[in-house]
Design a protein around this nucleic acid. Structure first.
Lengths: 192, 192
DNA sequence: CTCTTTTGTCTAGCGGTGCTAGGATCGAAT
DNA sequence: ATTCGATCCTAGCACCGCTAGACAAAAGAG
Protein backbone atom coordinates (compact mmCIF):
# COMPACT_ATOMS: atom_id res chain seq x y z
CA UNK A 1 0.00 0.00 0.00
CA UNK A 2 2.58 2.50 1.08
CA UNK A 3 4.45 2.01 -2.16
CA UNK A 4 1.45 3.19 -4.10
CA UNK A 5 1.06 6.16 -1.82
CA UNK A 6 4.66 7.16 -2.35
CA UNK A 7 4.22 6.92 -6.10
CA UNK A 8 1.08 9.00 -5.97
CA UNK A 9 2.89 11.60 -3.90
CA UNK A 10 5.78 11.72 -6.33
CA UNK A 11 3.38 12.03 -9.21
CA UNK A 12 1.57 14.93 -7.60
CA UNK A 13 4.90 16.54 -6.87
CA UNK A 14 5.94 16.24 -10.48
CA UNK A 15 2.66 17.76 -11.60
CA UNK A 16 3.29 20.75 -9.36
CA UNK A 17 6.75 21.00 -10.88
CA UNK A 18 5.29 21.09 -14.38
CA UNK A 19 2.86 23.87 -13.52
CA UNK A 20 5.46 25.89 -11.65
CA UNK A 21 7.97 25.51 -14.47
CA UNK A 22 5.42 26.48 -17.12
CA UNK A 23 4.52 29.55 -15.12
CA UNK A 24 8.14 30.50 -14.58
CA UNK A 25 9.00 30.06 -18.22
CA UNK A 26 5.94 32.04 -19.29
CA UNK A 27 6.82 34.94 -17.01
CA UNK A 28 10.42 34.90 -18.16
CA UNK A 29 9.95 34.62 -21.90
CA UNK A 30 6.23 34.74 -22.61
CA UNK A 31 3.74 31.96 -23.33
CA UNK A 32 5.03 31.54 -26.87
CA UNK A 33 8.26 30.25 -25.41
CA UNK A 34 6.42 27.63 -23.36
CA UNK A 35 6.69 24.75 -25.81
CA UNK A 36 6.26 21.16 -24.76
CA UNK A 37 9.86 20.47 -25.71
CA UNK A 38 11.34 23.26 -23.64
CA UNK A 39 9.05 22.51 -20.75
CA UNK A 40 9.97 18.83 -20.84
CA UNK A 41 13.65 19.66 -20.90
CA UNK A 42 13.36 21.98 -17.91
CA UNK A 43 11.63 19.40 -15.75
CA UNK A 44 14.16 16.84 -16.98
CA UNK A 45 11.62 14.42 -18.39
CA UNK A 46 10.63 13.63 -21.94
CA UNK A 47 7.70 15.26 -23.69
CA UNK A 48 5.21 12.38 -23.34
CA UNK A 49 5.42 12.66 -19.57
CA UNK A 50 3.59 15.98 -19.82
CA UNK A 51 0.73 14.19 -21.54
CA UNK A 52 0.41 11.71 -18.71
CA UNK A 53 -0.50 14.64 -16.47
CA UNK A 54 -2.35 16.95 -18.83
CA UNK A 55 -4.33 16.46 -22.00
CA UNK A 56 -2.23 19.06 -23.74
CA UNK A 57 -0.69 22.47 -23.53
CA UNK A 58 -4.08 24.07 -23.06
CA UNK A 59 -4.65 22.22 -19.80
CA UNK A 60 -1.29 23.33 -18.50
CA UNK A 61 -2.30 26.92 -19.15
CA UNK A 62 -5.54 26.16 -17.33
CA UNK A 63 -3.66 24.85 -14.31
CA UNK A 64 -1.56 28.00 -14.15
CA UNK A 65 -4.75 30.05 -14.46
CA UNK A 66 -6.39 28.34 -11.49
CA UNK A 67 -3.31 28.79 -9.35
CA UNK A 68 -3.17 32.43 -10.37
CA UNK A 69 -6.86 33.04 -9.69
CA UNK A 70 -6.40 31.78 -6.15
CA UNK A 71 -3.52 34.17 -5.60
CA UNK A 72 -5.36 37.07 -7.19
CA UNK A 73 -8.37 36.52 -4.92
CA UNK A 74 -6.11 36.42 -1.87
CA UNK A 75 -4.28 39.57 -2.96
CA UNK A 76 -7.53 41.46 -3.42
CA UNK A 77 -8.90 40.34 -0.05
CA UNK A 78 -5.68 41.27 1.72
CA UNK A 79 -5.71 44.72 0.16
CA UNK A 80 -9.35 45.49 0.91
CA UNK A 81 -9.14 44.19 4.46
CA UNK A 82 -6.52 46.78 5.24
CA UNK A 83 -8.56 49.70 3.88
CA UNK A 84 -10.90 52.01 5.78
CA UNK A 85 -14.25 52.94 4.28
CA UNK A 86 -15.96 51.94 1.04
CA UNK A 87 -14.15 54.43 -1.19
CA UNK A 88 -10.73 53.35 0.03
CA UNK A 89 -11.67 49.71 -0.22
CA UNK A 90 -12.59 50.05 -3.86
CA UNK A 91 -9.43 51.97 -4.62
CA UNK A 92 -7.35 49.35 -2.83
CA UNK A 93 -9.15 46.64 -4.78
CA UNK A 94 -8.40 48.30 -8.09
CA UNK A 95 -4.75 48.75 -7.23
CA UNK A 96 -4.41 45.18 -6.04
CA UNK A 97 -5.97 43.92 -9.27
CA UNK A 98 -3.80 46.04 -11.57
CA UNK A 99 -0.74 45.37 -9.46
CA UNK A 100 -1.25 41.64 -9.83
CA UNK A 101 -1.68 42.00 -13.58
CA UNK A 102 1.50 44.03 -13.82
CA UNK A 103 3.62 41.78 -11.65
CA UNK A 104 2.32 38.51 -13.17
CA UNK A 105 1.53 39.29 -16.78
CA UNK A 106 1.79 35.71 -17.99
CA UNK A 107 -0.43 34.42 -15.21
CA UNK A 108 -2.89 37.22 -15.87
CA UNK A 109 -3.00 36.17 -19.50
CA UNK A 110 -3.57 32.56 -18.52
CA UNK A 111 -6.58 33.60 -16.46
CA UNK A 112 -8.10 36.28 -18.62
CA UNK A 113 -6.79 36.10 -22.15
CA UNK A 114 -5.65 32.65 -23.14
CA UNK A 115 -7.68 29.54 -23.64
CA UNK A 116 -7.01 27.21 -20.75
CA UNK A 117 -10.05 25.10 -21.48
CA UNK A 118 -11.87 26.43 -18.41
CA UNK A 119 -15.54 27.27 -18.08
CA UNK A 120 -16.34 30.84 -17.13
CA UNK A 121 -19.54 32.32 -15.75
CA UNK A 122 -21.28 28.94 -15.50
CA UNK A 123 -22.23 26.37 -12.90
CA UNK A 124 -19.24 24.20 -13.64
CA UNK A 125 -16.81 27.09 -13.43
CA UNK A 126 -13.85 26.03 -11.26
CA UNK A 127 -13.97 27.25 -7.68
CA UNK A 128 -10.88 29.52 -7.86
CA UNK A 129 -12.43 31.52 -10.68
CA UNK A 130 -15.75 31.85 -8.91
CA UNK A 131 -13.91 32.88 -5.79
CA UNK A 132 -11.90 35.58 -7.55
CA UNK A 133 -15.15 37.07 -8.81
CA UNK A 134 -16.59 36.74 -5.30
CA UNK A 135 -13.62 38.67 -3.93
CA UNK A 136 -14.41 41.49 -6.33
CA UNK A 137 -18.07 41.39 -5.40
CA UNK A 138 -17.41 41.58 -1.68
CA UNK A 139 -15.94 45.06 -1.90
CA UNK A 140 -18.04 46.36 -4.77
CA UNK A 141 -21.37 45.31 -3.32
CA UNK A 142 -21.57 48.30 -1.03
CA UNK A 143 -20.85 50.86 -3.76
CA UNK A 144 -23.04 49.55 -6.57
CA UNK A 145 -25.61 52.24 -5.95
CA UNK A 146 -29.38 52.07 -5.62
CA UNK A 147 -31.25 49.97 -8.12
CA UNK A 148 -28.11 48.47 -9.60
CA UNK A 149 -27.51 44.77 -9.18
CA UNK A 150 -24.17 44.21 -7.42
CA UNK A 151 -23.33 41.40 -9.84
CA UNK A 152 -23.84 43.63 -12.83
CA UNK A 153 -21.88 46.43 -11.22
CA UNK A 154 -19.04 44.06 -10.44
CA UNK A 155 -18.92 42.86 -14.02
CA UNK A 156 -18.70 46.41 -15.31
CA UNK A 157 -16.05 47.46 -12.83
CA UNK A 158 -14.05 44.34 -13.51
CA UNK A 159 -14.29 44.82 -17.28
CA UNK A 160 -13.01 48.37 -16.91
CA UNK A 161 -10.02 47.23 -14.89
CA UNK A 162 -9.40 44.47 -17.40
CA UNK A 163 -9.43 46.95 -20.24
CA UNK A 164 -6.93 49.20 -18.50
CA UNK A 165 -4.72 46.23 -17.64
CA UNK A 166 -4.61 44.69 -21.09
CA UNK A 167 -4.40 47.89 -23.13
CA UNK A 168 -1.61 49.15 -20.93
CA UNK A 169 0.44 45.99 -21.12
CA UNK A 170 0.14 45.70 -24.88
CA UNK A 171 1.42 49.25 -25.22
CA UNK A 172 -1.88 50.63 -26.46
CA UNK A 173 -2.24 52.88 -23.43
CA UNK A 174 0.81 54.79 -22.16
CA UNK A 175 1.57 53.45 -18.68
CA UNK A 176 2.41 56.74 -17.00
CA UNK A 177 -1.19 57.83 -16.44
CA UNK A 178 -2.50 54.62 -14.96
CA UNK A 179 -2.99 56.22 -11.56
CA UNK A 180 -5.30 59.05 -12.66
CA UNK A 181 -7.18 56.57 -14.85
CA UNK A 182 -7.89 54.39 -11.84
CA UNK A 183 -8.90 57.40 -9.77
CA UNK A 184 -11.33 58.47 -12.46
CA UNK A 185 -12.81 55.00 -12.66
CA UNK A 186 -13.29 54.74 -8.93
CA UNK A 187 -14.67 58.27 -8.64
CA UNK A 188 -17.25 57.83 -11.35
CA UNK A 189 -18.27 54.22 -10.99
CA UNK A 190 -18.40 53.80 -7.23
CA UNK A 191 -21.37 55.44 -5.52
CA UNK A 192 -19.36 56.39 -2.46
CA UNK B 1 6.48 53.36 -68.80
CA UNK B 2 2.96 52.10 -69.07
CA UNK B 3 4.12 48.52 -68.68
CA UNK B 4 5.70 49.34 -65.35
CA UNK B 5 2.58 51.15 -64.30
CA UNK B 6 0.44 48.16 -65.15
CA UNK B 7 2.75 45.91 -63.16
CA UNK B 8 2.62 48.25 -60.22
CA UNK B 9 -1.14 48.32 -60.39
CA UNK B 10 -1.33 44.55 -60.51
CA UNK B 11 1.03 44.29 -57.58
CA UNK B 12 -1.08 46.67 -55.52
CA UNK B 13 -4.16 44.73 -56.50
CA UNK B 14 -2.58 41.48 -55.35
CA UNK B 15 -1.63 43.08 -52.05
CA UNK B 16 -5.24 44.09 -51.50
CA UNK B 17 -6.23 40.53 -52.33
CA UNK B 18 -3.86 39.17 -49.71
CA UNK B 19 -5.21 41.46 -47.00
CA UNK B 20 -8.83 40.83 -47.94
CA UNK B 21 -8.28 37.07 -48.02
CA UNK B 22 -6.48 37.05 -44.69
CA UNK B 23 -9.32 39.03 -43.16
CA UNK B 24 -11.95 36.77 -44.65
CA UNK B 25 -10.19 33.63 -43.51
CA UNK B 26 -9.67 35.04 -40.04
CA UNK B 27 -13.35 35.93 -39.67
CA UNK B 28 -14.41 32.54 -40.96
CA UNK B 29 -12.09 30.28 -38.99
CA UNK B 30 -10.10 32.48 -36.62
CA UNK B 31 -6.57 33.82 -36.85
CA UNK B 32 -5.06 30.46 -35.99
CA UNK B 33 -6.36 29.17 -39.30
CA UNK B 34 -4.64 31.97 -41.17
CA UNK B 35 -1.42 30.16 -42.03
CA UNK B 36 0.89 31.27 -44.78
CA UNK B 37 0.21 28.04 -46.64
CA UNK B 38 -3.58 28.35 -46.56
CA UNK B 39 -3.42 32.03 -47.38
CA UNK B 40 -1.10 31.37 -50.32
CA UNK B 41 -3.37 28.66 -51.62
CA UNK B 42 -6.45 30.89 -51.43
CA UNK B 43 -4.86 33.67 -53.41
CA UNK B 44 -3.51 31.06 -55.83
CA UNK B 45 0.14 31.97 -55.43
CA UNK B 46 2.97 30.26 -53.61
CA UNK B 47 4.00 31.15 -50.07
CA UNK B 48 7.07 33.26 -50.95
CA UNK B 49 4.86 35.72 -52.82
CA UNK B 50 3.39 36.76 -49.48
CA UNK B 51 6.86 37.68 -48.34
CA UNK B 52 7.41 39.92 -51.32
CA UNK B 53 4.55 42.06 -50.03
CA UNK B 54 4.90 41.71 -46.27
CA UNK B 55 7.79 40.97 -43.94
CA UNK B 56 5.80 38.19 -42.38
CA UNK B 57 2.49 37.14 -40.94
CA UNK B 58 2.66 39.89 -38.34
CA UNK B 59 2.63 42.58 -41.01
CA UNK B 60 -0.40 41.03 -42.64
CA UNK B 61 -2.22 41.24 -39.34
CA UNK B 62 -1.10 44.85 -39.12
CA UNK B 63 -2.52 45.60 -42.55
CA UNK B 64 -5.88 44.11 -41.56
CA UNK B 65 -5.74 46.16 -38.37
CA UNK B 66 -5.25 49.43 -40.23
CA UNK B 67 -8.08 48.67 -42.61
CA UNK B 68 -10.29 47.77 -39.67
CA UNK B 69 -9.39 50.89 -37.71
CA UNK B 70 -10.48 53.04 -40.63
CA UNK B 71 -13.82 51.27 -40.74
CA UNK B 72 -14.28 51.45 -37.01
CA UNK B 73 -13.66 55.18 -37.01
CA UNK B 74 -16.17 55.65 -39.81
CA UNK B 75 -18.75 53.51 -38.02
CA UNK B 76 -18.40 55.51 -34.82
CA UNK B 77 -18.65 58.83 -36.62
CA UNK B 78 -21.71 57.71 -38.54
CA UNK B 79 -23.42 56.56 -35.36
CA UNK B 80 -22.68 59.69 -33.36
CA UNK B 81 -23.61 62.02 -36.20
CA UNK B 82 -27.13 60.59 -36.16
CA UNK B 83 -27.61 61.07 -32.41
CA UNK B 84 -29.18 64.03 -30.62
CA UNK B 85 -27.58 65.41 -27.49
CA UNK B 86 -24.40 64.43 -25.63
CA UNK B 87 -25.92 61.54 -23.70
CA UNK B 88 -27.32 59.90 -26.81
CA UNK B 89 -24.11 60.50 -28.71
CA UNK B 90 -22.08 58.66 -26.10
CA UNK B 91 -24.54 55.80 -26.02
CA UNK B 92 -24.50 55.58 -29.80
CA UNK B 93 -20.72 55.60 -29.73
CA UNK B 94 -20.59 52.74 -27.27
CA UNK B 95 -23.04 50.68 -29.27
CA UNK B 96 -21.20 51.34 -32.51
CA UNK B 97 -17.92 50.27 -30.90
CA UNK B 98 -19.28 47.09 -29.38
CA UNK B 99 -21.27 46.31 -32.49
CA UNK B 100 -18.14 46.54 -34.60
CA UNK B 101 -16.31 44.24 -32.20
CA UNK B 102 -19.12 41.71 -32.33
CA UNK B 103 -19.56 41.75 -36.10
CA UNK B 104 -15.83 41.72 -36.87
CA UNK B 105 -14.19 39.78 -34.06
CA UNK B 106 -11.08 38.86 -36.03
CA UNK B 107 -10.53 42.40 -37.21
CA UNK B 108 -11.10 43.66 -33.67
CA UNK B 109 -8.43 41.25 -32.48
CA UNK B 110 -6.05 42.43 -35.16
CA UNK B 111 -6.48 46.01 -33.98
CA UNK B 112 -6.63 45.57 -30.23
CA UNK B 113 -5.29 42.19 -29.19
CA UNK B 114 -2.80 40.75 -31.63
CA UNK B 115 0.65 41.94 -32.45
CA UNK B 116 0.56 43.53 -35.88
CA UNK B 117 3.86 45.26 -35.39
CA UNK B 118 2.17 48.65 -35.14
CA UNK B 119 3.11 51.52 -32.87
CA UNK B 120 0.38 52.70 -30.51
CA UNK B 121 0.08 55.93 -28.59
CA UNK B 122 3.20 57.42 -30.13
CA UNK B 123 4.18 59.98 -32.74
CA UNK B 124 4.78 57.33 -35.37
CA UNK B 125 1.44 55.66 -34.75
CA UNK B 126 -0.26 55.04 -38.12
CA UNK B 127 -2.91 57.55 -39.06
CA UNK B 128 -5.90 55.15 -39.00
CA UNK B 129 -5.20 54.28 -35.38
CA UNK B 130 -4.81 57.88 -34.37
CA UNK B 131 -8.00 58.68 -36.22
CA UNK B 132 -10.00 55.96 -34.48
CA UNK B 133 -8.95 57.40 -31.16
CA UNK B 134 -9.82 60.85 -32.45
CA UNK B 135 -13.30 59.62 -33.36
CA UNK B 136 -13.77 58.47 -29.78
CA UNK B 137 -12.48 61.75 -28.47
CA UNK B 138 -14.83 63.84 -30.60
CA UNK B 139 -17.91 62.53 -28.85
CA UNK B 140 -16.42 62.06 -25.40
CA UNK B 141 -14.85 65.48 -25.17
CA UNK B 142 -18.13 67.15 -24.21
CA UNK B 143 -18.93 64.69 -21.41
CA UNK B 144 -15.52 64.37 -19.73
CA UNK B 145 -16.61 66.62 -16.89
CA UNK B 146 -14.92 69.59 -15.24
CA UNK B 147 -11.26 69.27 -14.45
CA UNK B 148 -10.87 66.01 -16.29
CA UNK B 149 -8.66 65.94 -19.37
CA UNK B 150 -10.69 64.74 -22.38
CA UNK B 151 -7.80 62.51 -23.48
CA UNK B 152 -7.68 60.79 -20.14
CA UNK B 153 -11.43 60.41 -20.05
CA UNK B 154 -11.41 58.93 -23.54
CA UNK B 155 -8.76 56.41 -22.56
CA UNK B 156 -10.80 55.27 -19.59
CA UNK B 157 -14.05 55.03 -21.49
CA UNK B 158 -12.34 53.18 -24.31
CA UNK B 159 -10.65 50.78 -21.89
CA UNK B 160 -14.01 50.01 -20.31
CA UNK B 161 -15.60 49.26 -23.66
CA UNK B 162 -12.59 47.15 -24.58
CA UNK B 163 -12.94 45.17 -21.37
CA UNK B 164 -16.60 44.49 -22.03
CA UNK B 165 -15.91 43.54 -25.64
CA UNK B 166 -13.07 41.12 -24.95
CA UNK B 167 -14.44 39.49 -21.82
CA UNK B 168 -17.77 38.95 -23.52
CA UNK B 169 -16.30 37.44 -26.63
CA UNK B 170 -14.04 35.06 -24.74
CA UNK B 171 -17.05 33.81 -22.76
CA UNK B 172 -15.89 35.31 -19.49
CA UNK B 173 -18.92 37.60 -19.34
CA UNK B 174 -22.35 36.22 -20.23
CA UNK B 175 -23.49 38.09 -23.34
CA UNK B 176 -27.13 38.56 -22.37
CA UNK B 177 -26.56 41.54 -20.08
CA UNK B 178 -24.39 43.59 -22.38
CA UNK B 179 -27.05 46.23 -22.80
CA UNK B 180 -27.48 47.10 -19.09
CA UNK B 181 -23.70 47.02 -18.71
CA UNK B 182 -23.32 49.65 -21.40
CA UNK B 183 -26.09 51.73 -19.91
CA UNK B 184 -24.39 51.62 -16.54
CA UNK B 185 -21.08 52.65 -18.05
CA UNK B 186 -22.58 55.56 -19.93
CA UNK B 187 -24.66 56.69 -16.95
CA UNK B 188 -21.79 56.72 -14.54
CA UNK B 189 -18.85 57.76 -16.67
CA UNK B 190 -20.40 60.46 -18.83
CA UNK B 191 -21.12 63.74 -17.08
CA UNK B 192 -24.29 64.42 -19.00
C1' DC C 1 14.92 -16.40 -5.83
C1' DT C 2 12.84 -16.69 -10.44
C1' DC C 3 9.40 -15.70 -13.60
C1' DT C 4 5.52 -13.02 -15.26
C1' DT C 5 3.03 -8.94 -15.56
C1' DT C 6 2.24 -4.39 -15.01
C1' DT C 7 3.73 0.24 -14.90
C1' DG C 8 6.44 3.89 -16.34
C1' DT C 9 9.37 6.30 -19.54
C1' DC C 10 11.75 7.26 -23.77
C1' DT C 11 12.93 7.33 -28.76
C1' DA C 12 11.28 8.30 -33.00
C1' DG C 13 8.06 10.12 -35.93
C1' DC C 14 3.63 12.42 -37.93
C1' DG C 15 1.64 16.41 -39.92
C1' DG C 16 1.71 20.99 -39.19
C1' DT C 17 3.95 26.02 -38.54
C1' DG C 18 6.69 30.57 -40.25
C1' DC C 19 10.08 31.60 -43.20
C1' DT C 20 13.96 31.43 -46.93
C1' DA C 21 17.66 29.91 -50.37
C1' DG C 22 18.37 28.92 -54.96
C1' DG C 23 16.95 27.58 -59.34
C1' DA C 24 13.69 27.96 -63.23
C1' DT C 25 10.87 30.70 -66.20
C1' DC C 26 9.15 34.42 -68.55
C1' DG C 27 8.95 39.03 -70.36
C1' DA C 28 11.28 43.27 -71.91
C1' DA C 29 14.97 45.59 -73.97
C1' DT C 30 18.91 45.54 -76.86
C1' DA D 1 17.63 36.54 -81.71
C1' DT D 2 19.78 37.04 -77.54
C1' DT D 3 20.84 38.80 -73.36
C1' DC D 4 19.33 40.28 -68.93
C1' DG D 5 16.49 41.26 -65.09
C1' DA D 6 12.37 40.64 -62.69
C1' DT D 7 9.23 37.27 -60.95
C1' DC D 8 7.79 33.15 -59.07
C1' DC D 9 8.03 28.35 -57.40
C1' DT D 10 10.10 24.06 -55.49
C1' DA D 11 12.26 22.34 -51.80
C1' DG D 12 13.84 22.61 -47.41
C1' DC D 13 15.11 24.40 -42.53
C1' DA D 14 14.10 24.41 -37.66
C1' DC D 15 10.49 24.39 -34.91
C1' DC D 16 5.59 23.29 -33.13
C1' DG D 17 1.83 19.97 -30.50
C1' DC D 18 1.07 15.46 -30.03
C1' DT D 19 1.37 10.11 -30.16
C1' DA D 20 2.63 5.08 -31.30
C1' DG D 21 5.41 1.62 -30.02
C1' DA D 22 9.74 -0.17 -28.06
C1' DC D 23 11.91 -0.84 -23.91
C1' DA D 24 13.30 -1.05 -19.04
C1' DA D 25 12.26 -1.12 -14.30
C1' DA D 26 9.55 -2.34 -10.65
C1' DA D 27 5.84 -5.15 -8.46
C1' DG D 28 3.55 -9.36 -7.64
C1' DA D 29 3.15 -14.60 -7.88
C1' DG D 30 4.93 -19.09 -7.35
Amino acid sequence: MSVQERKQRERAERERLIVATARELAEQQGWDAVTTRRLAERIEYSQPVLYSHFRGKREIIGAVALQGATELAAAMRAATAAADGPRERVAALAHAYLGFAERNPAVYDAIFQLDGGLAYAQEDTPEPLKDAFAALLESLDEVAGDGVAPGLFTEVFWASLHGVATLTRSGRLPPEYTEPRVELLVDRLAMV
